[in-house]
């Protein structure tokens, strides 16, 4: 019986979008982190989603975070001689994070999350109605 797999599908999407939100929040928090524990400047991270079957037959696909990838685009270099992490010429390497881009991604994650919540609720309604057969 895989009647409830529809909830697993929606739940997997909620979980994945939440993980994406965590990554985005981490990017936003580190927008000015010029150093990390392993010395270098903070590098922007992003999630990679992958469709994954929720039932043994693999007919219905949920989603999961395949991996958290590191964005290797060039860091932003700004001139700020007073900064403690500035190099000899006074340039500081800032993370490759565009705060507007992160905001847009966060809004998209929120919308996707909301869409899955409504899908979950519609499934629930349908199940409740099914329970009423013969009443």
């Amino acid at each position: 019986m895989d009647s409830f797999s529809v909830f697993k599908i929606s739940a997997s999407a909620l979980d994945s979008q939440r993980k994406r939100m965590n990554v985005i929040a981490s990017n936003m928090a580190n927008v000015h982190s010029t150093s990390t524990e392993d010395q270098g400047v903070y590098q922007r991270k992003d999630v990679l989603f992958e469709a994954t079957p929720v039932d043994p037959k693999g007919k219905y696909e949920g989603v999961k975070v395949k991996e958290i990838v590191i964005d290797n685009t060039q860091p932003i270099v700004v001139y700020d001689p007073a900064h403690p992490d500035a190099d000899a010429e006074g340039y500081v390497t800032m993370p490759n994070i565009n705060i507007i881009e992160e905001m847009v991604n966060m809004m998209m994650a929120t919308r996707a999350y909301e869409a899955n919540v409504s899908a979950f609720n519609i499934s629930k309604e349908l199940f409740m109605k099914t329970m009423e057969i013969g009443r």
């Binding site: 599908i9 999407a13 979008q17 469709a51 219905y60 949920g62 998209m108 899908a119 499934s123 349908l126």
Partner: peptide, 18 residues
Amino acid sequence: TNKRHKVIASNIANIDTP
């Protein structure tokens, strides 16, 4: 309708899957 519901839920879940 139950089956189709699952298929659509799966589409919504994978809205950002490459």
